[in-house]
Amino acid sequence: MFKYVLEFSKRGYIKYTSHLDLQRIMKRAFRRAGIELQYSRGYNPHPRMSLAQPLSLGYEADAEWLEIETEEPVSAHRFQTELQKNLPEGIQITRCGEIKEKKSLAACVSGAVYTVCFPVPYYREDFPAVTERYLEQEQILVQKKQKKSRELREVNIREKIRTMTPEEGCRGKLRIRLELDCGSASNLSPELVIRSFLEFTSLPCRRYEIDVTRNRLILPLDYAIRWM
């Protein structure tokens, strides 16, 4: 058994593909490329393939991680040629690595970095000062739907926001870089930060006008990946 991670970007209309559909696309691409994935055992075997963290519908990504197990060794060249040509437009493999850890990527990811682009001029307000006031709140309370009960519950998200940095983006628009908790131990969706920040600032924009890109996922420094 050989364990690999494929890093890929996801841009353009493919961002409207759901997590489950993306898994189907990847599975089909491996089959067409002739790369044999290892399968689980039991009555309903499935390929040992998983995305490190599901990406919300409508988000673009610079460096998503797909963890796979194969029956035989596969070269980086084969991943980046034979597999790549079977992937749809918008998905680009950027690098490949061999995983030397027993724990999965999904179990070890602890954070994520996002870029959020707002359709308002950066110099409309003193956004560094506004952001500082936003983060100075002892509590940032939002309504969050619970997974099991599906009921709305008020939660404090302040401790899960690691950093929040405003900057001038493309065409002079406001761009905010976020580093948030992400993973099985602690997780915060950028949607909750965006919603509460819009309420705090009363910015004149709607959610569909805001673009979000996940730039990277964060692993422990000692997680062993040998990039090929």
Rank of each mutant, 00 (worst) to 15 (best):
I140A: 08
R24E: 09
P128V: 05
E168A: 11
H77A: 15
A107R: 12
L37Y: 05
K103Q: 12
Q80L: 15
E71G: 12
L87K: 07
E151S: 10
G97E: 08
D62L: 12
V109E: 01
S56W: 00
W227H: 09
E36H: 10
R78W: 03
K173D: 01
E7F: 08
S189T: 04
P47W: 05
P204S: 13
D211H: 11
S18T: 14
E151M: 11
A112M: 05
L203P: 02
W65C: 10
A106N: 06
L192Y: 15
I225Y: 06
Y123E: 15
Q23L: 15
N44R: 15
L55E: 02
Q143R: 14
E60V: 05
D222Q: 14
M1F: 11
R206P: 00
E98Y: 11
R28I: 01
R124P: 00
E89V: 12
I140C: 09
E168H: 02
I25G: 02
V193S: 01
S184K: 12
G12I: 07
E98H: 13
T201M: 04
P220R: 13
P121S: 14
E191S: 13
G111W: 01
A29F: 09
I218H: 06
I157F: 07
R150W: 02
E67S: 09
K102T: 07
K100Y: 11
L180P: 01
C96Q: 04
T81N: 11
T17S: 11
Q23V: 12
S196W: 02
F118G: 05
K103T: 10
C96K: 04
E151D: 08
R162W: 04
A33M: 12
M49E: 03
R150Q: 14
C182D: 00
L87E: 02
Q38E: 15
E89S: 13
V113I: 05
R214W: 01
L37R: 10
C170E: 13
P128A: 09
I210V: 07
G90A: 08
A33V: 10
G42V: 07
R226L: 15
F30R: 12
R150G: 05
E60Q: 14
N44F: 13
A76H: 05
E159A: 14
G169Y: 03
I68K: 06
H19D: 08
E191F: 03
D181T: 09
I194L: 12
R216H: 02
G97T: 07
R41Q: 14
Q84F: 06
E125D: 04
R216V: 00
F79I: 11
W227G: 06
Q53R: 04
I99F: 05
T94I: 14
H19K: 13
Q80G: 00
K148H: 07
G169E: 07
F79S: 08
N215L: 11
R153Q: 13
L217T: 02
E136C: 11
V113F: 01
V142Y: 07
R150S: 12
Y16E: 07
S18R: 12
R175M: 09
Y122M: 10
R207M: 10
E67Q: 13
K3R: 15
F8I: 06
R41H: 11
G97W: 08
S196C: 03
G34D: 08
